[in-house]
Design a binder for these strands. Structure first.
Length: 571
DNA sequence: TAAATTGGCGCC
DNA sequence: AAAGGGCGCCAATTTA
């Protein structure tokens, strides 16, 4: 599958946009240093389009440059995003928090004062597309960018696992391309369907921005149940009202409310559910975020420390299930919705190399069922809770009880997350499989010393660890690092999945495009006749991602797929 | 008055 | 039955 490999060297060029809409470019050798002279082209897109032999474009920031190429109809196969790589390398070096702009990297290289990063700008729904903004370059000439790039190559060599680190920066760069393409494509969204649903759920929308009819009615029911006016959206008011009724609660979370026997509970819970839809995905959301039949969130690959993506504006990764009815394929097209099955347990099997868990994860069938057959006398729910509890660091409840059984049967898997938790409690850093590194504990830093950090050897300066005892802060940090190694390695795999899928769709010359990605789930929008091939492409990409990320492993990465007209029809 | 924090809940 | 990881978003409240 030549179109799907992740070649790291060959045909690399560095490019930097100029103020006048052109670009400066130079070919790069294997060492990352320039080969030949810098050339200037009058038009950025033409400069790229005219060099089809280039297999990887090295540039400062994909988010800055690629939308403009896409607008001109130019797609690129691969890129290397210098500022993204800088962030990953800094993290790996235990220096997360230092400025990551190319200008900062260049200044560090030359022992000059390091400029702080510009503040991140929040997405505004009505904001002009970056297409019409001038390049937001940092004023660094191409020659300096290339110096930073060559230095980054050396820093990859110095990483704990240089090959994996290269894979990490290459795949996150690919993720940047995917993100820009998805931002451009948008998720098909039927505003009329959405409005119908809002009306059905919430009732009429009153002018002046007040609560819709159904919410007002529920608020009245809550008040009637208490015998006085109570505002259901104010936790303090609700807690006080229950106290007056002789019921002591400390929070108004749904699970806490549902324990209570009181006539206010039912309307209160219903109110919270609908209130959430009204404020987060209601009429004003629709107005702000849906244009021309598409919802266009801004994806940020690696936006969370674990490497999961985030979105900026529009809450794209929290679309309530009921609202998904509004996600409808175009006429004659379909949505291929693919969900990776039990991704995190499978990733734990691959990274811990626990023989028993690898065997359980070596089949496409339901992982929790085979887990429970082996270790929980067929009790699937207990098996699932135990495994998730181990990954999340559960501290009480049934999950904890069943952890003992899990530890007996799958000692290496449990030890892997336990070791990560211990590292976190002791203030050390942990890494994902490909080398993304957890941030230093709060209060650590400042005293960073020379030399390359090795796994588990980075000191913390918060001084709160004492042998045999961990403070609640330390334990919280342990839960974080415990989960980080699994969630983050799963994000590693997901990046490779996206890169492989993108390459596969492009090489097959399909009209299909990726339109949604959410941790372990992708949606591809495609003509009906391409749907079967898309399903195949997704399955192959998942397996390929597993092999590239984790090497020779028996662990399988199957998907549940659905070819549907509406997102809500999947699952 | 603006920025930061809190509580709650949606998704994974 | 009870609450462990990661986010973004909203409204209200507290802090600067």
């Amino acid at each position: 599958m030549p179109g799907v490999t992740l070649a790291l060297v060959d045909g690399k060029w560095a490019i930097d946009p100029t103020e006048d809409g052109g670009a400066r470019l130079v070919a790069l050798g294997r060492d990352g240093l320039p080969e030949g002279a810098v050339v200037h082209e009058g038009e950025l897109a033409a400069a790229v389009r005219g060099r089809p032999e280039v297999t990887r474009w090295v540039w400062r920031s994909t988010a800055d440059i690629y939308p403009r190429l896409l607008a001109a109809g130019v797609r690129v196969e691969r890129c290397y995003d210098i500022e993204d790589a800088e962030l990953l390398l800094l993290g790996h070096e235990g220096r997360l928090g230092e400025p990551r702009s190319a200008a900062a990297a260049w200044a560090r290289l030359h022992r000059l004062p390091v400029p702080p990063d510009p503040p991140a700008r929040a997405a505004e729904p009505g904001r002009q597309s970056p297409l019409f903004e001038p390049p937001s370059g940092t004023g660094l000439p191409l020659e300096a960018l290339v110096e930073v790039y060559a230095d980054q190559q050396k820093r990859h060599d110095a990483a704990l696992h240089p090959g994996r680190m290269r894979l990490l920066t290459a795949s996150e760069s690919a993720g940047m391309l995917v993100a820009a393409e998805m931002n451009r494509a948008g998720l098909p969204w039927r505003a009329d369907v959405h409005r119908e649903m809002l009306h059905g759920l919430l009732g009429e929308r009153y002018a002046g921005g007040g609560e819709p009819r159904r919410l007002a009615e529920l608020a009245d029911e809550v008040s009637a149940a208490f015998g006085r006016r109570v505002r259901p959206d104010l936790p303090a008011d609700v807690i006080k009202a229950f106290a007056e009724a002789g019921i002591r609660i400390t929070s108004t979370r749904r699970w806490a409310l549902e324990e209570i026997d009181h006539p206010a509970v039912a309307p209160l819970v219903e109110y919270k559910k609908l209130y959430r839809i009204w404020t987060a995905h209601g009429w004003s959301w629709l107005q702000d975020w849906v244009r021309d039949g598409r919802f266009r969130p801004e994806y940020t690959p690696g936006g969370s420390v674990s490497g999961r993506w985030t979105t900026n504006g529009g809450g794209a990764l929290q679309i309530p299930k009921v609202i998904r009815q509004a996600v409808v394929a175009d006429e004659g097209w379909r949505l291929v919705v693919a969900d990776a099955d039990q991704m995190e347990p499978r990733v734990l099997a691959a990274i811990s190399r626990d023989p028993g868990l690898m065997e359980v994860a070596g089949h496409d069938g339901d992982l929790y069922t085979s887990l429970s057959d082996r270790a929980f006398s067929g009790d699937r729910e207990h098996a699932k809770l135990a495994l998730l509890g181990a990954i999340y660091g559960q501290t009480s409840g049934d999950g904890l009880k069943n952890l003992a059984a899990l530890r007996r049967r799958f000692p290496k898997a449990v030890a892997y997350v336990d070791d990560a938790a211990k590292a976190g409690e002791e203030g050390r850093l942990v890494r994902t499989w490909l080398g993304r590194t957890s941030p230093p504990a709060a209060g650590a830093g400042e005293d960073g010393e020379a030399g390359l950090p090795q796994e588990g050897e980075l000191p913390s300066s918060d001084g709160e660890f004492t042998p045999g005892y961990a403070s609640s802060n330390a334990r919280a940090r342990g839960r974080f690092t415990r989960n980080f190694v699994v969630q983050g390695s799963a994000a590693d795999w997901a990046l490779l999945l996206l890169a492989a899928l993108r390459a596969s769709l492009a090489s097959a010359g399909m009209r299909a495009e990726l339109v949604f990605f959410q941790h372990d789930e992708v949606i591809v929008h495609c003509p009906l006749e391409e749907a079967a091939d898309v399903v195949t492409a997704i399955r192959s990409a998942g397996e390929l991602a597993g092999r590239i990320a984790f090497g020779d492993t028996p662990v399988r990465f199957p998907f549940t797929t659905a070819v549907v007209e509406r997102y809500s029809e999947a699952k």
